[in-house]
Design a protein around this nucleic acid. Sequence first.
RNA 1: GCCGCAUUCGUCUAGAGGCCCAGGACACCGCCCUCUCAAGGCGGAGAUCAUCGGUUCGAAUCCGAUAUGCGGUACCA
Length: 504
Amino acid sequence: MTVRCRIAPSPTGPLHIGTARTALYNFLFARHEGGTFVLRLEDTDVARSTVAYERDILDGLHWLGLEWDEGPEVAGQPARGPYAPYRQMERLPLYRDAAERLLARDLAYPCYCTRDELDADRAAQEAAHQPPRYVGRCANLTAGERRAREAEGRRPAIRFRIPPGTVAFDDIIRGRVEIETDALGGDLVIVRSDGTPLYHFTVVVDDAEMAITHVIRGEDHLSNTPKHILLFRALGADVPAFAHLPLILNPDRTKMSKRKSQTAIADYRGEGFVREALVNFLALLGWASGTEEEIFTLEQLVERFDLARVHSGGAIFDRERLEWLSGQWIRRLPTEDLAERLVPFLSADLAARVAGGARVVRQPTVEDMRPLMPLVQERLPVLGAIGDLVDFLFIDPIAVDPALLVPRHWDAGTAVEGLEAARDVIAARGRVSFEADELEGPLRELAQQRGWKAGDLFMAIRVAITGRTATPPLFDTMVALGRARTLERLDAAAGMLRERLPTD
RNA sequence: GCCGCAUUCGUCUAGAGGCCCAGGACACCGCCCUCUCAAGGCGGAGAUCAUCGGUUCGAAUCCGAUAUGCGGUACCA
């Protein structure tokens, strides 16, 4: 039997961290076992499903590198695979047939209860401190009674009969789980009165129809699994194996939610977290290799992943750890790859600064980025931080805070003196010798001659040419800026400071 | 309320009866390196293994109860 597993997101919101993690585990398991990974869209909640969300989910999964073997490839376009279509709203006849089969064998029945009746039942049960469950008002209607209700114009929902007894299964992660069907809330609505099928029904019909062998999903479905098993049996289908993953939690240990955490994959992507880091991080949220290794590529994860090693307790989403992993991955990226990924982030950052009044003198290109890689690669926690590191190369003039031009041990007069002296030393280097190696020596010498700490001199220069106190190494930075602009900015800074000097 | 699942440093976790007075990583602190910021190296602090009882020569590991947390309990998914 070859393994078939699936991810079944519903396009009622952007791709969620939890969905991505579930998709990853399904992908890893399928690939590890040489099986098939299916993507199915559960869009039966028509009111909340949109094509835009569908696009976000597909884009996100593609971006993470979780390629599926069967399913829709592009939002709104037809799906591919032997069990197509893979959107539930395009599979309606299948659910109708399945429901008919259950009806024909009296495993399900039409239910004419109104919303009001149901609400009243529930209220009464609550008042009597009883668990809410369907009272079975329509469970044994005669043909005549049904006709009478139809004649009134009532459209029935369809309920699946929950038989008495206990349902047991062996969860791959949690072991044996047994639940009394009594606790399931009574007969289950599988088709709404408007004819559209409900989740618990479609998921089973589709998993059966698509020959899914392993259902790997969040722990929030554990309690619902008995309903699914009962439906598989009623449909005469093989019951798949189940593996319920621990939940990803907000810092307060509740199920991770948009309300309390950043849950959209697209938002992390937008910040410049690299896909390798997100995949690595998500894999480690609930699973560990058992070795002391922490950094894994997708391929390595496929090789090592083992469902039985998945942890069973919930895991808080730890952004600090994600950021660390992101930095680790950025440092491991080939420089050409990094340069390419950085361009759009820098452009966006510069565009935002233009909106703030800055003048961008040059649109960054991959060619511009290449020589900067050694300066920035180990300083980026996320791609989106690139602007803070190199914006001064693309903006002119830069904004300089005069207070920062004066290092801690200096006064303003010394700063002017230092900047002017540095300017002269640098100007003395010709165009040809404007290299980091050639600049550091003479400037250190200058500091020594004047009795300044080299660090103070360098800080004054740093602020003068970048407007910042934290930058890549100074001499490389000057080279990247170029001789002319370096001298220009030193002049400008010295001039600005001099104007502020008290005239005695 | 009822049902289910879970519980090891702040966080992610290792640990499948003696190798554990519990190991690694993130974060934190200190030192080193150093022109800033990072990165890197070294070191430190941090867990009565939720609690109680049992099984055993021996328990984080097995069993039971309790507590706490979370999840489910829809004509949502």
